[in-house]
Computed example of a mutant assay.
Amino acid sequence: MEIPGGDRGVELRIHGVSGASAETIVDHPIVVRVAGDGHAGFYRVREGLGSAGGATAGVVVEAYRWGTLTAGVAVRTASMLVLLPFMLSNLAVWMRSTPVDRCGLLGGLCRLLAGSLTVAFTLALVGVTMNLTGWQCVPYAECRESLVLCSVPDQAVALGEARRVLRPGGELRFYEHVVAQTPGLRRAQRLADATLWPLFCAGCHTARDTVAAIRAAGFEVTALDRFRFPPTGLPAPASPHVLGTAIRA
């Protein structure tokens, strides 16, 4: 979008959750859409018909109207919430000063940040939903841990709480991805944990020795199966898995 008339910048006005027309946002009866579509678009006062209400000299006023994005089915409304970080960062890309970002580096960094935020938010939402619907430790005669101990801040605390609520002789059933048994993949896991993996995967750590932590928490491992998932292709940091049971000692 070009800024007309040699103006110095753009003032972007966005309505709240209650919605508003583009004419109301820019305080002018005649507007034209310059980008976007009927669901979400950018509007300006039609050229030659004056300026927006409250406009500063040398600044173009634009309205961003997004109200119909959330109209319709609940799935589309929920998807808008998940994609909100990306949408806001994408706005930042288009509002950047072109002379300052001649190589497009700033735009690329904004999009990378937007993608990272969206992935982290989505994975965190999925993890919380799985935990809530799974209701990990009910009934108290047994406890289930499934792909949770990789992301808890302190494994000892989480396992100690599981042991506390279990009856003596109660069973802990676990399915987790764990530290690799080969030195090469262990090094790759430590590198992943020290860089971007926890950020992109909602706090997940791939190099945790979860089986040792279960034993240290006061459980006796009675069955253990180690396997790689997926079973084919190049191993990823989260490929080594364990499936087993342990008894509260």
Results as ranks from 00 to 15, higher is better:
Ala207Gln: 08
Thr133Met: 09
Val138Glu: 13
Met130Gly: 04
Gly127Ile: 00
Ser151Trp: 05
Pro168Val: 00
Leu196Asn: 00
Cys201Trp: 12
Thr182Pro: 02
Thr98Val: 13
Ala223His: 12
Val93Asn: 12
Ser151Arg: 10
Arg164Asp: 07
Leu106Tyr: 15
Val165Glu: 15
Ala156Arg: 15
Ala188Asn: 03
Val157Phe: 04
Thr206Asn: 08
Thr182Gln: 15
Glu220Lys: 06
Leu196Lys: 01
Val165Cys: 11
Cys150Gln: 11
Gly108Glu: 15
Val152Tyr: 08
Ala192Arg: 05
Ala217His: 05
Leu105Asn: 10
Leu113Glu: 14
Asp225Asn: 11
Glu161Pro: 00
Arg96Pro: 03
Val100Cys: 08
Val148Pro: 04
Met95Thr: 03
Leu91Gly: 07
Gly104Arg: 04
Leu117Ile: 01
Thr222Pro: 08
Phe227Ala: 04
Gly184Thr: 00
Ala92Trp: 09
Arg96Asn: 13
Arg96Ala: 13
Ser151Tyr: 04
Gly233Tyr: 08
Thr122Gly: 06
Thr222Ala: 12
Leu224Ser: 05
Thr232Val: 07
Asn90Ile: 02
Ala114Asp: 03
Val152Gln: 07
Met130Ile: 10
Thr129Glu: 09
Ile214Cys: 05
Leu166Pro: 08
Thr122Glu: 07
Glu220Thr: 07
Arg208Asn: 04
Leu196Arg: 03
Leu185Asp: 04
Pro139Gly: 08
Pro168Ser: 03
Ser146Glu: 14
Pro231Asp: 05
Met130Asp: 13
Leu199Ser: 08
Ala124Cys: 02
Pro99Thr: 00
Gln181Ala: 14
Ala202Tyr: 02
Leu172Trp: 11
Gln181Pro: 02
Arg187Asn: 07
Phe219Gly: 01
Tyr140Trp: 07
Ala188Phe: 06
Ala141Asp: 14
Ala212Lys: 09
Val119Glu: 14
His177Ser: 05
Val152Met: 02
Glu161Asn: 05
Glu145Ala: 13
Gly160Cys: 00
Val152Arg: 06
Leu159Gly: 06
Leu185Thr: 00
Ala194Ser: 10
Leu147Trp: 07
Arg173Lys: 07
Val152Ile: 03
Gly134Met: 10
Val148Phe: 15
Pro168Phe: 03
Leu113Phe: 13
Leu199Gln: 09
Gly108Lys: 14
Phe200His: 09
Pro198Arg: 08
Met95Asn: 04
Gly115Val: 02
Arg215Asp: 10
Gly184Glu: 12
Leu224Trp: 12
Tyr140Val: 00
Arg215Ile: 02
Arg102Phe: 06
Pro99Ile: 01
Gly115Ser: 11
Glu171Asp: 06
Ala207Tyr: 09
Val221Phe: 10
Leu166Ile: 02
Trp197His: 14
Val128Gly: 08
Val165Gly: 11
Thr133Gly: 02
Ala223Gly: 06
Leu132Met: 12
Ala192Gly: 04
Leu112Val: 07
